[in-house]
Design a protein around this nucleic acid. Sequence first.
RNA 1: UCCUCCUUAGCUCAGUUGGUUAGAGCACAUGACUGUUAAUCAUGGGGUCCUAGGUUCAAGCCCUAGAGGGGGAGCCA
Length: 514
Amino acid sequence: MIKSVLYRFFAFLTKAWPLLSNQFKLLKTKNMAFNKRVKIQELFTQDYVGKEIVLMGWVRTKRSNKNVSFIALNDGSTIKNYQIVADPNQIDEELLKKATTGACLKIKGTVVASQGAGQSTELVASHIEVLGEADAEKYPLQPKKHSLEFLREIAHLRMRTNTFGAVFRVRHALAFAVHKYFNDKGFFYIHTPIITASDAEGAGETFKVTTLDLKNPPLTEDGSINYKEDFFERETNLTVSGQLEGELAAMGLGEIYTFGPTFRAENSNTARHLAEFWMIEPEMAFYDAEDNQNLAEDFLKYVINYALENCQDDLEFLDKRAAEEETSKKADQRSELGLLERLKFVVNNDFERLTYTEAIDILKNSNHNKKKKFQYLVESWGVDLQSEHERYLVEKHFKKPVILTDYPKEIKAFYMRQNDDGKTVAAMDILFPGIGEIVGGSQREERLEKLTQRMEEMHIPTEEMWWYLDTRRFGATPHAGFGLGFERLVQFVTGMGNIRDVIAFPRTPGHAEF
RNA sequence: UCCUCCUUAGCUCAGUUGGUUAGAGCACAUGACUGUUAAUCAUGGGGUCCUAGGUUCAAGCCCUAGAGGGGGAGCCA
């Protein structure tokens, strides 16, 4: 009897073992720390008082007197520093001397309630190990405010500052929120190619991709470069957009998005352009222009709200930072809302939606235009809007994000769906205060004849694009999508004025140092 | 690419009408201080005034050219 029970039990174990062991593995992974240190962030969310722990991090400042040293330590897990108390009777003085600003330390000690006013707990050190010294004479970062321009020149070190720590934690949260939003909505993440052969998007200058010897390239009979001998046996470049491939994917998977690097070789020197940036491009079968607008607005509100809920400390810091910057601006250039107020406002209010035609009317009749305060006066329907006009609409007239729709077809790309009026296309641009265009999108032209006709008008080679046109030949359906510049989103949420300060290692004309 | 402003100590910046030895705060070094919060106080070291040329008895300051950076514009996300 006992034997049979035992036998059954072992039989069960044998069968179930792979499953159980998998469960154990999962449990193990969940609780596994890869080293024994405690992250500073945990010290603010869990009670460690009385416990002996190990911290690792970088010295921000050290304050000393005869009897005691205080080290403000930061490990990047949070913007908050943690106070280390070092008694010179306990810790070797020579060792403490090496704990200069920027040095990396491993500290063993006990968490206690703080005697001082600025923090509720602190770590009384029993052992300090200097993992990496930082020669105070040479280390460029000091416990003071540095200019963003200076920090840009030492981009390899700037993550160690409060500002850039905050920016990159927020950037991460936004990137994560992008994936979460689309995943929760049943969208599929598509990796569109980085190297492409099509130069037909019309989205600007491209970077060439080649393995040919640039000093001595193979030539054809007429003297031009023979790309047949190149790696791909054709001319290739870095992608300027994943949209066209995204459309192909949406025609089978329904709703997809891309989130990848994008390259533009434009000689753009502005606070909102990069040569290498990250773009999010959802593409949806069965969506019309209005569905597209609804998705874009909902998406933007979601990711901004996600940052508000998950990056409170960092955003509060950036809010104060932005407020200080504001004081140095001229009165007429200051924004009415602070950073946090602005983010909450965007999350809680509907975007203003209007057509290009309505926008032109507003601009034409504005006092600003009548008093000739625009550099480019708005006189007739059909002109492209200048950034001063977009800013006027967003910052002065509506004072909220604006979705502009139905632009003249002449100023928009070939793939946008032509409206019945014969003059406009189902485009949409979303304009944000301080940033300008953050989203550009449209319902796509799904009608083969209309699309090929427009391509021919705009001198886009239809033969090369046979694969794109095939989606209109076989099982075509109304569909729509948009592109969102990720760095511009990060700019808006962090309040950083220059796009070069929201990407780790910016690529701009003349700059690829790090 | 165009317009415009800027470049003085490791960092942030002042420097008068062209006139003697170029300044401050922070940082750094030394010292003081019984728990600090970008600690404080005292003392000290630290300069190719972006580069090249020019004007002048004399240039950080004026002129020309170049380099680097900021802001704005275009292109766009």
